[in-house]
């Protein structure tokens, strides 16, 4: 097994340089006094106190709430899709999965911009409603438009891991369940769902983490007032210029995410 250790070396170097060291840097920023030179090393709790004092907590809560809703909707809509795809002949499956990934190739900004055109007050949906003689609906700059944008953007990240674990599944297990007298619902719950859980957990992890940290989509579909944690960090770094407070928020977010991740990992291990 020694040769595998050699193989991993470039990866270890890469990970240390680009992940570990910069993360230490973030922690340093979060705990030091104002000023963009980190190496001053004058430690303080000020940045974290600022976070608790203000209404910033609400921003975090809202971000997580939106992340959970988005993930849930992606799972609810994406699981059946992955399941349906996994039952086609293998060649068709490959094509369908390709079709799922193609929209990901279009720039996310453009897809979001297209949704703006569709949802706007004088956009396509409202023009259609107008033709049908119905009253226009205000959809832009609401939770609805933001969630729609998030779900549409991140759906493939739910579908692909679920499909991977569903298509890896031994189909004879399903037949065996039927032969043993299981109802379709029982078969699904006890065999298919159980076997697809690694994929589901992967999907949940990806979608949640992408949606909780996004800032472009809420900015475009939610308007300038729409503050999520990503927007907060961005404003701290770009407009306010308080790198230290921005780092403190980032650190809090990172810690919450790490807890979430280890919970997911534990669930995954339990299933095994």
């Amino acid at each position: 097994m020694k040769h595998y250790k050699k193989m991993i070396q470039p990866y270890v170097v890469w990970a240390a340089l680009l992940i570990v060291i910069p993360l230490i840097l973030i922690a340093l920023y979060a705990f030091t006094e104002e000023g963009n030179e980190v190496l001053t090393l004058s430690f303080t709790w000020k940045n974290f106190a600022k976070f608790l004092e203000s209404t910033y907590v609400n921003v975090v809560v809202k971000s997580f709430w939106l992340g959970i809703i988005t993930t849930f909707l992606c799972l609810l809509l994406g699981y059946p899709l992955a399941f349906i795809i996994s039952r086609f002949p293998e060649k068709t499956q490959a094509t369908l999965i390709l079709l799922v990934t193609i929209p990901e190739w279009i720039n996310m900004l453009l897809r979001t911009y297209a949704w703006m055109n569709i949802l706007a007050d004088n956009g396509i949906i409202n023009q259609l409603l107008d033709l049908l003689g119905m009253r226009p609906v205000n959809m832009m700059y609401t939770d609805f438009s933001v969630i729609l944008g998030l779900v549409c953007n991140f759906m493939p990240f739910m579908i692909i891991p679920i499909h991977t674990s569903l298509s890896k599944m031994d189909k004879s297990l399903i037949e065996a369940a039927y032969d043993l007298g299981a109802t379709p619902f029982q078969t699904f719950r006890k065999v298919i769902w159980k076997l697809s859980i690694p994929g589901v957990l992967n999907g949940i992890m990806m979608v949640f983490l992408l949606s909780v940290s996004t800032f472009v989509i809420p900015k475009l579909l939610g308007g300038g007032q729409y503050m999520l944690i990503g927007n907060l960090i961005e404003s701290q770094f770009i407009s306010v210029g308080d790198w230290n407070f921005g780092s403190a928020i980032s650190l809090i977010l990172a810690v919450i995410i790490l807890i979430f991740m280890s919970l997911m990992k534990r669930m995954d291990k339990q299933e095994e």
Partner: peptide
């Protein structure tokens, strides 16, 4: 290592961007 390997996907892009900026700046 396994934790570290997926860390970049767990960490918000915006933090990665800012962190890389600070790192390259350093």
């Amino acid at each position: 290592m396994e934790y570290i390997s997926i860390l970049p996907l767990m960490i918000p892009e915006i933090i990665l961007g800012m962190v890389l900026m600070a790192f390259f700046y350093m």
